[in-house]
Structure formats: C-alpha cells, structure tokens
Amino acid sequence: MAKLDLQGVTKSFGDNPVCRGIDLTVDEGEMVCLIGASGSGKSTLLRCINLLEPIDDGRILLDGVDISEPGLNPQPIRARIGIVFQSFNLFPHMTAAENVMLAPRRVLGKSRDALEAPVKALFERFDLGQRMHHYPDQLSGGQQQRVAIIRALAMQPEIMLFDEITSALDPELVGEVLDVLRQLRTEGMTMILATHEMAFARELADKVCFLDAGRILEEGPPEILFSDPKEPRTRAFLSRVL
C-alpha cells in the first residue's frame, strides 16, 4: 500500500481552478519532486495534503485512510505531516529552540526537560548547535530555513512536504539547505518537494512530476523525464529552466 495516495484531487479558489484532478502515489521512503511553472498548482497541492486547504473533490489517503473527509479534525493529521514553507515562517518572538519545542510541548504534551536533549541533538545534527538560542532575526536565511526544517522534524512526521524552500534564499545559501534534504534522503524520510532546483531533483528524486495548469502532465524517474520528455509542454518548460 502506498504511504500517500491522491485520487483525482481538485481545488479551486473562487472561479480559479488550481488543481484539476491530480492522481499521485508516494511510497514509504520515496522522494517525489513536483516541477512546473509558477501557478501550476505545486504549492496548493502541498497545502492540500497537509489539510491547510480543504480540497473540493477527490480523495487523499494516508496509509489507506481517507484524510480528506470533510469535517475531520485536521490537527492530529497535520502533526503527522510536516511542511516547510518558502518564507520560513518562524515565530519571530521565540528563539530557534523555542520554535522547535512549541508543537511537541503543546500538541504532544512533552515537557521542556524531556525535549532538551533530543532538540539539542537535532540542532547539532544539522550543524546549528551554536544557534539554538538565537532569535530568527539573528539568523541568516539559510539558517532560518534549517530551523524551520528542524521545527517540522521535531514532531517526528511520517511525511515531509517542502514548498520551494530554497526560492527565497540568496544563491550562496541554497547549498546548506539542500544538504539537509540530502541527509534526510539518506535517512529514508518520505518527502514531496515543490522545487525549481532541477539539478537537485535530477540527482535525488525517485520520481519527478511535471505540473501544468493544475494537472500532472507527465511523471517518471528523473533520468527519463529530464532527458526524454514525451510532452511538448514538458519539453518547452525544461528547455527554459535547464
């Protein structure tokens, strides 16, 4: 059984259809990259999976259970699916460590003392041990985005969603964030990325999906999709970004 199974997911904002019937399966430990022009529906799809946006039609199955059922309490499901945003969205009034501990304390009911050691270990694993007690505005963009990833990981999610997480970074800071993703990849995390980093998608993804106008126009392993795309629109897009 697939870890995550999207069946005909549709989502409109008013009269504007953003996802027009998306089918996608993601297996445990798989890394899937969503590529496509801005406005093709990548971000909205991720926000729908995390239940930040309710879908209009279709189904989202997590471990075979429909999580898109209208009226379902989204909180326990969101706690199982981590998401990292393009604009970091750290809480500016809390230190990096407090940002990370907030949800485990309030949602999982863990004590500050019990969290101290594992949170410290997380920061050290991603080379931020020295920055734990800094406030977001004292951190570089790359550091903030790594803290945002740690914050999501601290909930021990089963799936991680990454919404163009390097797009707001200066070019020289992109590398440190991609390194974190590489590390998660080797640890076997199930991940879905909306990304413009084609080289990165090519290097690490199990599957790449090209989204166009709210549909997955073409999908496949990166070596095939990037070198031999079938659809003219995929070819046109790739020739513009590669």
Binding site: N50, Q75, R78, G82, F85, N89, L90, R151, M155
Partner: peptide, 16 residues
C-alpha cells in the same frame, strides 16, 4: 496569516 498557517501545520489548535 502565514504565521497561523505555520502553527496550524504543526498541529496546533486555533486556540493554541
């Protein structure tokens, strides 16, 4: 609203 979205995505309730 992105602050609320970030908090919601971590599983916090509206009140929290």
């Amino acid at each position: 609203h992105s602050q609320r979205a970030a908090a919601a995505s971590l599983g916090l309730s509206d009140g929290e």
